[in-house]
Design a protein around this nucleic acid. Structure first.
Lengths: 330, 330
DNA sequence: GTGAAAGCGCTAACAG
DNA sequence: CTGTTAGCGCTTTCAC
């Protein structure tokens, strides 16, 4: 602000070279050793930092990625959102890349000119935004959602398979009355987990019962409400496959309150491998989803796209069943 | 990328006016109606969006705020961090301002040139960064921490008073053995809450006992560990004042498991008024901290600073005791 | 290897 | 009110 901001000119003058030479130094072009040293020293002494937007205007990079999160109600109540932000921040800062965060509430306010590329963390109600960005031909990668229509790169999780394995694991322990606490079904991963649940039942000739599927929207509160209803039913399930560890964790508290023994009377599998949920005397059996790997891959792909490698890549990562304390034979 | 990006020139040509007129239109300067309409239409048809960095270079604004979060271990496990991000995002997007997110891990990587101003959410280990930004004279405001030394604007919470009131509330209910589950004491708010606790005890002639103060670092896991230890003591407290609702919530589960009746045998006060912790049959009595108001004020102040009003403002907001189910007489 | 100079897209005087 | 023009700070030809 109105500060005598030092520019590339000042550095050039101080080092006794042209601004072009300084620019080359900044961009790691080969320089004669003595010049290089002089410039380095001048930069140091003046504590010079190039203005990124000027650089960008002249054809350089901003070294900034955009991160767009769909701001649907609930995303902020999730382990997931922060995890994504953290991992993206970690993955980018390791590459000296800054992050431009944009939350899609209802209007598309993302300024693509402020980023070299964009990471979209799931697409919930911002499909049109995605299309706009594709149209603008800005490098982008979608994370945590498989996208069919615009042909874009994405890195997603095989939620279906993860859920399938979880439920089959329960079945192999002799369970026949298996409930599913589902998430917000407008979110792809929640839908896929439900599908995996259904599919595992079908493959194992178990009847699908509507009453055993409960919508929690990933929230503890709604989980609690559903628990009260579910356990008021004549026939109570012997196992519950939950859409998230937080939901499973709430089931665990409920069970402890009601003195329902886990895993003797009730088996439980979560989803996420959320470290917050690892407390108490029982460790949750769960499906680990490789969020970190997903984000890292996404960032890597985005960098490749920006650097000119343009084939859209579609990656689906597998989950892993983590066996701990909450599943037993019946 | 390498797309025939449309510029202000294209718009000018299409509208049959000069680029200056287009610029004026974009910046809401008075224009003759017919010209205004022509430009508006051209902008519309070409789907033109100005390049923010070019605008900025020419003296305009980026309409972007920086948000710096100190990346100490634990910040990502907190309700707090997401709440701050969400509120900042909400407060800025309401003003058509974008957010440049930077997490301070160990190096100062924040590019001040990519923002018109900066919001620093607490200062944990980035005091030097704060000093650098002050030196660069970039508009900034610190949120959730009272800063003495560089004379900067801040908006903070009166944690001391909040804690004091909580503990006094317990004392007025007849409690004499009051424990405190403290947070990470390197964080100012945790220290202030501890101080408030101590002060309330002292003012009411109650002895301060080291053994009744337990460090949880705001984590459920450590809370659980401390609970085991605390309740193994010969004399058990009749009330616990917790540094956060999450910690209090964990105490609640513990109590339910151990069949310690709340609030009959154990009274409990949290801190935050965290909606995630409102489930189960008991509603937590807590200290509400106005995070939203804090962030909104911070954004407002930052805007004023950017617009030239330069007196540093120091604001401390009061908390509010929310009386619900978890405190009883003894 | 290096310097001079053009120009990225926009805003802000300055005349008219 | 509007058009002309001079930069903003940087990268990138193009000569040397």
């Amino acid at each position: 602000m109105s500060f005598p901001k030092i520019t590339i000119k000042d550095v050039a003058k101080k080092a006794g070279v042209s601004i072009a030479t300084v620019s080359r130094y900044l961009n790691n072009f080969p320089l004669r050793k003595d010049n290089k040293d002089k410039v380095a020293q001048a930069v140091q002494e003046l504590n010079y930092r190039p203005l990124l937007y000027a650089r960008r205007l002249a054809g350089g990079k901003l070294n900034t990625f955009g991160l767009i999160l769909p701001g649907y109600e609930g995303i902020f109540y999730s382990f997931y959102a922060l995890e994504i932000i953290r991992e993206v921040a970690a993955a980018t800062s390791g590459n000296a890349i800054d992050l431009h965060l944009n939350i899609f509430w209802d209007k598309d306010t993302f300024q693509s000119s402020l980023a070299d590329g964009v990471i979209l963390a799931d697409i919930i109600n911002n499909q049109r935004q995605l299309e706009r960005l594709v149209e603008e031909a800005i490098p982008l990668v979608v994370v945590n959602k498989k996208i069919e229509d615009p042909e874009v790169s994405f890195v997603a999780i095989n939620n279906f398979k993860g859920a399938y394995e979880a439920v089959e694991f329960l079945i192999h322990h002799g369970h026949k009355q298996i409930a599913h606490f589902a998430g917000d079904l407008r979110v792809q991963c929640a839908q896929e987990r439900l599908d995996g649940y259904k599919s595992a039942l079908a493959k194992n000739n178990l009847e699908f019962k509507e009453a055993l599927v409960r919508k929690t929207n990933f929230s503890r509160k709604e989980t609690r409400e559903q628990l009260e209803k579910l356990f008021a039913l004549p026939q109570v399930p012997t196992a519950i496959f939950c859409c998230s560890d937080e939901v499973a964790s709430e089931v665990l508290s409920f069970a402890e309150e009601k003195r329902i023994e886990v895993p003797k009377k009730l088996s439980l599998i979560g989803f996420d491998d959320n470290p917050h949920c690892l407390y108490g005397n029982l460790m949750l059996t769960t499906i680990r989803q490789p969020l970190k790997a997903m984000v890292q891959q996404g960032v890597k792909i985005l960098k490749e796209i920006i650097d000119g490698q343009k084939t859209p890549q579609r990656v689906v990562l597998d989950t892993e069943l983590i066996i701990r304390d909450t599943v037993g034979f019946i």
